[in-house]
Nucleic acid binder design. Sequence first.
DNA 1: CGGTCCCTTGATATTCATCAATATCAGTGG
DNA 2: CCACTGATATTGATGAATATCAAGGGACCG
Lengths: 253, 253
Amino acid sequence: MDDSRNVIDIASVKVACQSCGLRQLCLPAGVSPQDMERLDDIIRRLRPISRGGHVFRAGDPLSSIYAIRSGWVKTYALAEDGNEQVTGFHLAGELVGLDAIASGEHPCSAKALDTTSVCEIPFERLEDLSCEVPGLQRQLLRIMSQELTTDEELLMLLGKRSAEERLAALLLSISGRLKQRGYSAHEFRLPMSRNDIGNYLGLAVETVSRLFTRFQQQGLLSVENKLVTVENLDALKFAAGSCSNRDAPSARA
Amino acid sequence: MDDSRNVIDIASVKVACQSCGLRQLCLPAGVSPQDMERLDDIIRRLRPISRGGHVFRAGDPLSSIYAIRSGWVKTYALAEDGNEQVTGFHLAGELVGLDAIASGEHPCSAKALDTTSVCEIPFERLEDLSCEVPGLQRQLLRIMSQELTTDEELLMLLGKRSAEERLAALLLSISGRLKQRGYSAHEFRLPMSRNDIGNYLGLAVETVSRLFTRFQQQGLLSVENKLVTVENLDALKFAAGSCSNRDAPSARA
DNA sequence: CGGTCCCTTGATATTCATCAATATCAGTGG
DNA sequence: CCACTGATATTGATGAATATCAAGGGACCG
């Protein structure tokens, strides 16, 4: 971690949220320019983490939460038996580590899937500041609430959807989020392994692999290793929610 | 809603968090007595909601979140095709509606599974107050973070566990939460239908039903309709995680 | 007492995991 | 540049877990 002395001094640099392209997605959203400066004062940008490196590890005390500036992060928990549960794939503008607030230590680990840079946000200082800056408190609550909603959607996915629907939904989610950040929604690199995808979606690797080939055969995607091109977005959307063939005898409800 | 004029005046009554047995579990935890009074000022206790009644419905604007005083609440979302996804079963001391903060309207509905009474907490006033009362802000964040953790555990359950493990885990969770609230951990009523259980766990009703009979045959439980008696707690724990020793002891509480 | 919903049980179908055998890729060092 | 190595991905064959279909029984509520 401290391999090269000469970069220590740039290991953390003052941030300027105001000049960050992600500020509408991230914590500063809804915070006034002058308050944003106060936020800048507590946030530090860490030096980039290379592929495979950790942002934090399960069990680490909660000292900070992290905002992703660029790159990809996967969060995962390890069961006692050692096998892993991937809990999310996160990209620029998203906050990781919020689930540590409850217990005071991180229940998950967060690992870079690509070279990734993050902003470190000391949690106690954030807590204090958000008392004084209502817009900040609101945004923090909003982000956490958003995560709850995302988890609920994922629960629905894992509980009720077929393998095909799950993968399609994941691809759509990623595509949409990339688009939101100014990247192509049609052509992108999936930096995580098939194993991670399967793990996240509750499927075997083999199933994920077969689905990719099937989607390709059906003309929904072109897949070349980690590079995915969406060829037919509508069909992909249909695949993600075609479960609706199920007769809905809305008698109940 | 306004069916009987004569109860209107007791429809909402000032709360006294201080005298509430749930205050350590609920929002007031970590709030000083004098601040708790300020909390009391904004919270109102609604008149009991009977079985099948709604606390709020999906699409309702977020005006309040709700703390459950007694009873059982199920939260669920309706997909476009009309079929339901149960997202949680909640009991006394738990907050529902937090996932509405992100969008400003409730993404889920909340329905009473039994006669249930709740405290209504106007969200904007809570937001304001929690700026002034740091202990309150902290507890609110802690509760939301706790929900994130719970969802993550559930994700693991749905993604990687067998039907048997899922049901066992649910029963243990319920048993543990009831115990925490001073009820019997060994004998309790499950107020939700088998359908709801299956829906929540991502299983068919029939599977749930078969599992109950199997557990009974194996001597883990006695089941009589909605009444469940845990006969062999250790075996149930074993069934819940043949690999994971989830310890009930209050790591957090 | 009749109806309706809910639960249980059995038989069958289907999806997906598992096992096993390559195949491909990303490094590493010759 | 190539051979070697271990990780990762694909593909096929098989089986197990669980959904689905179908039918009957029981509980609850008017």
